[in-house]
């Protein structure tokens, strides 16, 4: 503590003491009043790619409760995987009568929303990018480093195979368009470079579709029944890959590694051996990061665009051995809580 603040404190205390008889209820903590003044009634809007998947539901609940908790207004927009609809939602928010104080945007690609972010900041709105980055550095990015994610997946797969295995790995990619898909691939490639004895035997696309994932995984396993691990880029499509492994009668022999939002289904799949490892995005922690950042930005006196920061969520590859009660969060509970709130 510096001398200056000490002095200030003492002064404040003296001032409080002096006014104590008049304002008996004052505690002397300027915080609540300041928070009230800077945060109450501030509107925060979440625009995910779509609301209909676990991560978005998690953010909606965990960040939403924080925002409502500090007296802000919490809203969401649901573009349902449509970039143009998302862009329009952001545009409308920028020009709306009661402007939001901050936007939390889950961007679909590197460029589409960049101009809009600039406009939002010019209009005095903080922009926090969540989970997917764009090439515009807004006030903050909070989310996964997808390359790290890929590295973790690859490491988990290498570990799962072990030294005595065939050392052949199959890959079920997303669509080779999305940066999350491309970055994951880069991460995996990086790790495999360090393990030259491991071989990538096939890398078909699921196109983010579970049935396609199943079909391509079936063919992959058919052609290479000796693979020791398959990496799927998304737990959603991994359900199809898992079905293919099951169909091929290779359950337990072929280890499935994927990424996920850490929802209960992931833990269940780990529990029953469907997934060998899941690189989980810690939604609760991520939401807490975002909430803290929101509170900071709105109180900081900073203007949108003045500061930049990247906050990467800590990710870990979780296996069955790591499972503890509370490792996963429950979508059901979250939805029940939201439904109760709606009433």
């Amino acid at each position: 503590m510096t001398i200056k603040t000490k002095l200030a404190r003492t002064l404040a205390a003296a001032l409080c003491l002096a006014t104590l008889p008049a304002f008996a209820q004052e505690t002397g903590d300027p915080g609540p009043a300041y928070v009230q003044q800077s945060l109450a009634g501030k509107k925060v809007v979440l625009i995910p790619l779509a609301l209909g998947f676990d991560l978005a539901q998690g953010w909606n609940h965990y960040i939403g409760s924080e925002v409502r908790g500090f007296g802000g207004v919490w809203e969401t927009r649901d573009p349902n995987w449509d970039t143009a609809a998302g862009a329009q939602a952001i545009t409308d928010l920028i020009s709306s009568a009661d402007k939001p104080a901050a936007l939390l945007v889950h961007t679909p690609d590197l460029t589409s929303y960049s101009k809009l972010f600039k406009r939002a900041q010019d209009a005095g709105i903080f922009v926090i990018q969540v989970d997917n980055r764009s090439n515009f550095a807004s006030d903050a990015f909070v989310g996964s480093n997808w390359e790290t994610l890929g590295e973790l997946e690859a490491k988990a797969a290498v570990a799962a195979c072990g030294d005595g295995s065939s050392k052949k790995i199959g890959l079920i990619q997303g669509d080779q368009v999305n940066s999350s898909s491309l970055d994951q691939y880069a991460g995996i490639a990086k790790v495999l470079k360090d393990h030259p004895d491991f071989e990538l035997v096939g890398a078909p696309d699921s196109n983010w579709d579970v049935t396609t994932a199943r079909n391509v995984a079936t063919t992959l396993l058919q052609q290479h029944p000796e693979v020791c691990a398959v990496i799927d880029f998304w737990d959603n499509t991994a359900a199809g890959t898992a079905a293919a492994i099951r169909d091929a009668g290779l359950t337990g022999k072929v280890k499935l590694v994927t990424t996920g939002g850490g929802e209960e289904l992931d833990c269940k799949a780990l529990e029953d051996g469907t997934f060998h490892a899941v690189v989980m995005t810690d939604v609760k922690g991520q939401s807490r990061d975002i909430s803290a950042l929101l509170k900071f930005l709105l109180q900081s006196g900073l203007k949108p665009g003045q500061a930049k920061s990247w906050i990467y969520t800590l990710e870990t590859a979780t296996t069955k051995a790591d499972l503890k009660p509370g490792t996963c969060w429950s979508l059901k509970d979250v939805q029940a809580a939201e439904a109760a709130l709606a009433k």
Binding site: G52, W81, N207, W208, D209, V210, T211, T212, R214, N236, A239, G240, A242, A243, D247
Partner: peptide
């Protein structure tokens, strides 16, 4: 039958080329 095989049904299949 799809649900039986995949243990879930993904409604995004509506937007696919199926």
């Amino acid at each position: 039958i799809t649900a039986a095989g995949l243990q879930s049904i993904n409604t995004r299949v509506v937007n696919s080329t199926l």
